[in-house]
């Protein structure tokens, strides 16, 4: 299956290992990714806090590039991008005056034909059997917490994926790879990333709660599917430990990294060395790295 691929700003820098590992897993599963030509930033949370028109126009600009190239499916791995793209598609379908305004802004009128997917949606559409068939190393003895972040499933009218309060997609993939997942209540709590450069105290408090709950639930790592959650939980873990006098040492891995390792990838191929909290202590004894 061929998909237009919108990496977004994060996956080209702070989330580079998500990009690398997703490419690896996509190759292994026969998903063809073609990067959207001349893509630009989707505006993330700054555009919708400034101008509604702008917050729809930026995703539409990228979607129209994909549509012009003949794609009807687009993958956006970053949740901030994903939710803006999905919201733009819904607005273009249901809000007539806005659609007219948007069409006046562009030389090419976007027809709304491009459906937007998160990698998890694509994996589940392929089926767990396809994933199971490619497993070379089982995740035996690995117990993790799957953290989905705020807008993968919210709001359900726009996201239309998984259970809104208790999602299972990542859990089912980890289980298919032979690993164990914990049941916990912080799966979709916000990590506060939109304040990360401004009011960091909010971010430290919210991320601390997520790390604490995962640790208390008996997880030895947290699995994420968004570059912003990862940057927060991994990059700020030292600060959180200092602020809240705790010791977590939890590696924060992307779902595609753990899938890649299980499919037989070398650690470098899925960018494990890019993680700030080293997963060596957790994955080493299991023979995964």
């Amino acid at each position: 299956m061929r998909y237009a691929y919108y990496p977004g700003c994060s996956l080209s820098s702070s989330g580079i290992e998500f990009h690398l590992s997703f490419q690896y897993v996509a190759r292994a599963l026969g998903i063809e990714l073609v990067e959207v030509k001349d893509w630009v930033c989707c505006g993330a949370s700054s555009a919708h806090a400034t101008s509604h028109l702008l917050s729809i126009a930026l995703p539409v600009l990228n979607l129209s590039h994909a549509e012009k190239e003949g794609f009807d499916r687009l993958i956006a791995p970053c949740l901030a991008c994903l939710s803006r793209f999905k919201a733009a598609n819904v607005e273009m379908k249901s809000n007539d005056p806005l659609r007219k305004k948007i069409h006046e802004l562009f030389d090419y009128p976007y027809q709304g034909k491009v459906r937007v997917y998160h990698p998890l949606e694509v994996f589940l559409e392929l089926g767990l059997d396809q994933i199971r068939a490619r497993v070379k190393k089982k995740l035996k003895g690995l117990r993790v917490a799957c953290y989905y972040g705020c807008v993968l499933t919210r709001p359900p009218k726009i996201a239309q994926f998984d259970d809104v309060e208790n999602p299972q997609s990542m859990d089912s993939i980890i289980q298919a790879l032979g690993g164990e997942t914990i049941d916990w209540s912080y799966k979709t709590e916000c990590c506060g990333v939109s304040m990360t450069l401004t009011f960091s105290d909010i971010v430290l408090k919210l991320s601390n709660e997520i790390l604490r709950e995962a640790k208390e639930g008996g997880a030895s790592a947290i699995i994420v599917c968004c570059p912003l959650c990862q940057a927060n939980l991994d990059g700020r873990q030292r600060q959180i430990e200092e602020t809240y006098h705790a010791r977590y040492g939890l590696p924060i891995l992307y779902i595609t990294q753990i899938m890649g390792l299980s499919f037989g990838a070398y650690p470098k191929e899925v960018g494990l060395e890019k993680l700030i909290t080293s997963p060596k202590e957790v994955l080493g004894p299991l023979g995964l790295m």
Binding site: S14, V40, C41, A57
Partner: peptide, 23 residues
């Protein structure tokens, strides 16, 4: 290498600037 020292300029920036100007 997770934080780039220099910015990367997208090829699509001209079109983007045009749209933002119109808005």
């Amino acid at each position: 290498g997770k934080m780039k020292p220099l910015p990367h300029r997208s090829q699509g920036v001209k079109e983007l600037q045009q749209v933002m100007e119109r808005i």
